[in-house]
Each structure stands twice: as structure tokens, then as C-alpha cells.
Design a protein around this nucleic acid. Sequence first.
DNA 1: CAGTTGTCAAGAGCAGTGCTCTCGTTTCTG
DNA 2: CAGAAACGAGAGCACTGCTCTTGACAACTG
Lengths: 232, 232
Amino acid sequence: MTASRTARERVRAELTREITEIARRQLATEGAGGLSLRAIAREMGMVSSAIYRYFPSRDDLLTTLIIDGYNAIGEAVERADAACPRDDFPGRWLAACHGLRDWALANPHEYALLYGSPVPGYHAPQDTVPPRLRDVTVLGAILREAYAAGALHPPPLAPLPPGTLKADAENLREVMADLPEELVFRGVTAWTGLYGWVSLELFGQLNNAIEARRTAFEHSMRTLAAVMGLDG
Amino acid sequence: MTASRTARERVRAELTREITEIARRQLATEGAGGLSLRAIAREMGMVSSAIYRYFPSRDDLLTTLIIDGYNAIGEAVERADAACPRDDFPGRWLAACHGLRDWALANPHEYALLYGSPVPGYHAPQDTVPPRLRDVTVLGAILREAYAAGALHPPPLAPLPPGTLKADAENLREVMADLPEELVFRGVTAWTGLYGWVSLELFGQLNNAIEARRTAFEHSMRTLAAVMGLDG
DNA sequence: CAGTTGTCAAGAGCAGTGCTCTCGTTTCTG
DNA sequence: CAGAAACGAGAGCACTGCTCTTGACAACTG
């Protein structure tokens, strides 16, 4: 809050920032497994034990990186959405999808840290929850606003969600307010489809199968848009 | 092939099997990161360097585990499909989906090894490709047979796939033979939706969001079935 | 201004990892 | 049966995260 109280605190904040920065670069080049406190210390001209004055353990550094990552991904999706006309709901959905995918392709290791296999021995603390919701909040907002504007025309597809899903639907309405139950779950299906595609593509499962990745991705996202009733 | 030629070869095969078995158990309890050649050797009462007579490196052991994993997952999906009446195409799709999900829930670390973030520094050799295709082959077969039986009634959803996807569609027909281009890509969308759900659920992204997981999963898979025209 | 208090980097050290090399021994083979 | 191939044991290298102690310095306080 009050910037630069004592000189000590200033230099401490600066060093903390520098550590996370080097860590982020290590993460980008080597992946989560290659993140080494000793290597960071070496690069900073410090001795390894000194790092522990700033981050009590490797996991705490990871938590910082994860929170930053969720924020970066959330911001990327928010910006992609914000660049579209407010009432072009299918366009906003596609832009958000591309925003997520482009960010993931540009930061594969960071994406893997967030949405890939959990790091062994690491358990995410509660602090990671709010930033994790930024991107899905955007998708929920698009859907909610489209519904409110009467721009949602979901085709009949499957039987209605069974009654046992009522509680979950209510829960999910925290990010997809006001939507009828059926649409909530179509939104979830689209959401899992989006992340499923990006994950499979990034983790190499589409190799030797699909070459025109961006085109195929967009087509798939258009299909999912139609499932939600967002026909463009 | 010819069982037990020399005594040496017999004991070698047995030890190799024992190593992979312990490794699989380590993988199941600790995850891919906790896989330690030294720990395996310790458990076998051997010295660590002796392991290298059987697996030249940790990566080679990983490759074996990965191939076994793809085969196990493929077999699980095949069995789930085989338990259904041949002409109940929606039922077969749902069974295959549950087969995959149930296997993944029962073997989370193994699933993570296959479909999660790639292990740092590890690059899958070509041997992993054929077993990797077993599960998607099942899904492709269901779709192909349903189409051949005239049981596919895909609803109009999105614009047709653009012409630039022609080559990819041809490629994908190796596992989804005879299907029109549009259906090939709807199949891909369903496929990514299936793996997306399982991955997100397994990697904890559905925590505090969806409680009735199995029900919600099945509903989502029904929706994807309807997208492919498999209405049950 | 002097003295206490807290913060800091440094270094040694522990237990663990993958992997390599060498050295006798055992087992198979020509 | 002799030579070759395979094998287990052990020492050792370079690396990891992390802990503990030590001595120096800066920041507050009487």
C-alpha cells in the first residue's frame, strides 16, 4: 500500500520480484520440473539458502507462479472479450476461446502448470481460487448477457439434466447467473470442450491427427457455440 | 515367443517384469515425479546401478509404463463398448465414456502420465503411437457403424467445416472411416469434450463447482452424443 | 548517540536423485 | 573347456530441496 516504507522493505520487494521473474523464465524454458531454487540463486549471484528468506519453500514459489498464471490467463481472456462489440455474443465467445488458446500456445509450460497434471506433492492453497475463476467468469458473463438479450436459441439436443443436478446448477450460477438449468450445463459442456481441446493440442495428443489446428479449433468452438444456442 | 530359452533369459524376463510392476505401483501411489530407480532397486534388494542392466534410463522405464497405460485404457474402453448390444449406438458411446472415466478415476496418476502435462525432458518414442489409438479407434468405430446403420441424425448446428480442413478430415478417417467431413469434426469435438471433462475433473478443476460428478458427466456426454447425431 | 533487536547472505551439511565406470563373478556358447 | 557375454556390487559425479549455524549489517529505541 504505502510505497517504500523502509529501504529494507524496498530491496526485499525488489529481490522477491526478481526471484519470481527468473522463476517464470525458468518455468517457460524448462517446465515446472526444471524449476530449481539453486539455479535461481546462481543466476542472481546469491547462495541457495538465501532464497529461503524470500520463499519458505519451493511450493510457495510455485503458488506465486500459479496465481500469476491464472491472472495472466484471465486477463488474456478478458481482453479478447473486451475487444468485441458487446452485443456480438458469438464473436465474443470465439474471441475468448482464441484468447485462451493463443495464451496457452504462447505459454505452454505455464498452462501445463495450471491445467495439466498436478505437481507431485504440491497442493494448491486457497489463495489460488479467486484468480482461477477469472476466465470462466468471462465465459459465464457472455452467456448470461446473451440470454438476457434474448440472443440465445439453444437447439433441442438431449434430455433435460436430471433433478440430482439442481444443487450443482445453483452452485454454478455463481459464474453463470440467471441461466436456466439446461443452459448452465450446456455451458459446462462447452467449457470442458474448450479446455479439452487446448489441453489435448498442447500436450501433443493432436499430433499426426490435425494439422490446420487453428481452423479446426475454431470450427469446434463454433459447434460448441451452437450447442449453447449462440449461433453466429 | 519360444518360452524360456536359457535360464538367464527367464530370470531376466522375470526381473524386468518385477521392475515394471514396482514402478507401476510407485507411479500409482507417488505419481510420475515420485518414480525413483533407486527406490525400485532398494525394494528389490538390488543395488541401484543394476537396474540399468534392464532399463537403460528412467525414460525407457517411463516409455514402458506409458505403453502399458495406453493399452490398459484402450482395453477398458473396448470392454465397456463390447458389453453393449451392437446396435445400441448411444449406449455404446455412453459406456465407452464411462469406461474411460472410471479407468481414469481408478488410475489417476497413470492417466496424468498419459494425458496430462508431458513429463519434462521426456519425449515419447514412436512405439507409443499404436496403443495410443486404441481408445479413439473404439469411438470411431461406434460412430462409423452408427452411420452405416443409418442411426445418425445430426442436427444442424454450425456452418460446414471450411475447405482447408479437407486434408485433416481425410487423415482422421483412418479411425473414423466413411464418415462425411462434418461428422468427422463433430466426432473430434465430442472426443475433445470427453477427454476435456475427464482431465478437468481429475486435475481438480471441478472442485467446489460440481458435486454430482458422474451424473453431470453423463449428461454432458449425452449432449455430445446428440451433437454427433447419436440420440438415445 | 549507544545499544539492542531483527534481518540478511554465506557456507557447510544431510538425504535424496539419475547416471557412469570399474571390478570380480556367474552364466552361456562355440 | 576356454573365451565371451551378461551380471551385481560398489564407488563416485553432479545435481536437487532444505536445515542449521555464523558473522555482518541495518533499523529501531532508551
